[in-house]
Simulated scan of single mutants.
Amino acid sequence: MPDLVRPAPDAVAPSTLVIRPRRLRLVAASFAVALVLVTLYGWFALPDDIQVLFTTSQRLTLLGVLALLVGVMVALALSVVRADESGLWFRNGLRTHTVPWDRVHQVVLRRGDPWAFVLLTPADGSAFSADLDAEKRQLMALQYGDGAAAQVGVEELRRRQRYWTTR
């Protein structure tokens, strides 16, 4: 279940909504810890006469690869969606996006999708057409695996979009 700030009632302007994936953070943290522990176990399981054969640059390379793998897992776990009166701000891994409400056509989370998507209206102001070339962005903080909480998050984003586009 993603961490979800409870929605404000429709009658008043919604506060800022922040959604983070719980399952993704748990899995990434578990894998990162397991990877570090297995690496340490593997290193200390080597006999001393084998360990001394590794040069400093080889040791640094191994540590760099470990840091890269852990860094990728942490970056994915830090995915977040923030919705306020100006629109959506979201981070997928290391990349951030800002989408104003007038560019949001629809927030979609279908059965079998790994995460939610936001379908965007064309930047040139032309009409939205639902085809394979439609511009979209992933909302990795809304993971399908988080079940009902992800659906609640999608519904709340849809409600906020309706609220801010009708004002």
Rank of each mutant, 00 (worst) to 15 (best):
A29F: 10
A29T: 09
A29D: 04
A29Q: 05
A29H: 03
S30G: 14
S30T: 08
S30H: 02
F31S: 11
F31N: 12
F31E: 12
F31C: 14
F31M: 12
A32V: 00
A32E: 02
A32I: 00
A32P: 04
V33I: 11
V33C: 05
V33A: 13
A34V: 01
A34M: 03
A34N: 03
L35A: 00
L35F: 00
L35T: 00
L35Q: 00
L35H: 00
V36G: 05
V36E: 06
L37G: 01
L37M: 06
L37S: 04
V38I: 07
V38N: 00
V38W: 01
T39W: 07
T39F: 10
T39G: 06
T39C: 05
T39P: 03
L40K: 02
L40H: 02
Y41R: 08
Y41C: 04
Y41S: 06
G42L: 05
W43A: 10
F44I: 08
F44G: 08
F44T: 10
F44M: 09
F44L: 12
F44H: 14
A45S: 11
A45V: 00
A45G: 02
L46I: 02
L46K: 02
L46G: 05
L46P: 03
L46H: 04
P47I: 00
P47W: 01
P47L: 08
P47C: 04
P47K: 05
P47M: 01
D48I: 14
D48S: 15
D48E: 15
D48L: 15
D48F: 14
D48M: 15
D48R: 15
D48V: 15
D49T: 05
D49E: 11
D49C: 01
D49K: 03
I50A: 09
Q51R: 15
Q51E: 13
Q51P: 09
Q51L: 12
Q51D: 11
V52I: 14
V52L: 14
V52H: 13
L53H: 14
L53I: 08
L53Q: 15
L53S: 15
F54T: 13
F54V: 12
T55Q: 07
T55R: 09
T55H: 09
T56Y: 01
T56F: 02
T56G: 11
T56S: 09
T56L: 08
T56R: 11
S57R: 11
S57N: 10
S57G: 05
S57C: 03
Q58K: 06
Q58I: 05
R59I: 14
R59L: 15
R59C: 13
R59A: 14
R59H: 13
L60H: 10
L60S: 09
L60E: 11
L60K: 09
T61G: 12
T61Y: 10
T61V: 13
T61C: 08
T61L: 15
L62F: 04
L62W: 04
L62G: 13
L63E: 11
L63V: 13
G64T: 10
G64L: 06
G64P: 07
V65E: 10
V65L: 15
V65Q: 08
V65Y: 10
L66P: 07
L66K: 09
L66T: 05
L66S: 07
L66A: 09
A67P: 04
A67V: 05
A67K: 04
A67N: 01
L68H: 08
L68W: 12
L68D: 10
